[in-house]
Computed example of a mutant assay.
Amino acid sequence: MLTFNWIALIILIVFVVFLILNRGIAIISQNQVGMVSTLGKYSRKIEPGMHLVLPFITRVDRVDLAQVPLKLNEQSVISKDNAEVIISLSLNYHVTDPYKFTFENADSVQSMIQQSRAHLRGIIGTMELNEVLNGTERINAQLSKELGSITDSYGVNVDRINIDTIQPTPEIQESMNKQINATREREAAIAKAEGEARSIELTTKANNDALIATAEANAQAVKVAADAETYRITKENEILSQSSDQYLAAQSIEAFGKLANSQSNTVVIPTSVTDSLGSIKTLGAVLENKKEK
Rank of each mutant, 00 (worst) to 15 (best):
R59M: 08
Q67E: 15
I78P: 04
V68C: 06
E74I: 06
S76H: 12
L65I: 10
P69F: 09
A83P: 01
E74C: 04
M50N: 09
N73R: 11
N82G: 08
H51K: 03
V77R: 00
V53I: 15
N82L: 13
P55S: 07
L54Q: 05
F56G: 08
L72K: 07
N82C: 11
V53D: 00
Q75F: 01
D64S: 10
L70N: 09
L70C: 08
I57E: 01
F56Y: 15
D61I: 03
S76C: 10
K71H: 13
R59C: 03
K80R: 15
V53Q: 04
K80I: 06
K71T: 15
T58Y: 00
M50R: 08
V68A: 06
H51C: 03
I78H: 09
L54A: 11
G49K: 03
L52Q: 08
V53N: 00
V60P: 00
K80T: 03
I78S: 11
A83V: 01
I78K: 11
A83L: 00
L54I: 14
V53L: 02
P55R: 06
L72V: 05
L52I: 13
S79W: 02
V63H: 03
P69E: 12
L65A: 02
V63F: 01
L52N: 07
G49W: 05
P55L: 06
P69K: 10
V60S: 05
V60T: 01
L70I: 08
G49A: 04
R62G: 05
A66T: 12
V77Q: 04
V53C: 05
L65W: 01
P69R: 09
I78E: 11
Q67S: 15
P55C: 05
K71W: 04
H51T: 00
Q75H: 10
K80A: 13
G49C: 02
D81C: 09
A66D: 13
Q67V: 14
N82E: 13
G49F: 07
L70V: 05
N82R: 14
V68M: 08
L65C: 10
V53M: 06
E74G: 09
E84T: 15
F56C: 06
L54E: 04
P69H: 13
S79Q: 00
L54N: 05
R62W: 02
L54P: 02
G49E: 06
Q75R: 13
N82V: 11
V77I: 13
Q67I: 14
A83S: 14
F56K: 10
F56S: 08
E84Q: 13
Q67G: 11
L65N: 06
H51S: 04
N82S: 15
T58C: 04
T58L: 02
L72T: 02
S76V: 14
M50T: 11
P69Y: 11
E74Y: 08
H51A: 01
V60M: 02
V77K: 07
L65F: 02
I78V: 15
L72F: 07
V63I: 15
T58R: 01
E84N: 12
E84I: 15
H51M: 01
G49I: 05
N73L: 06
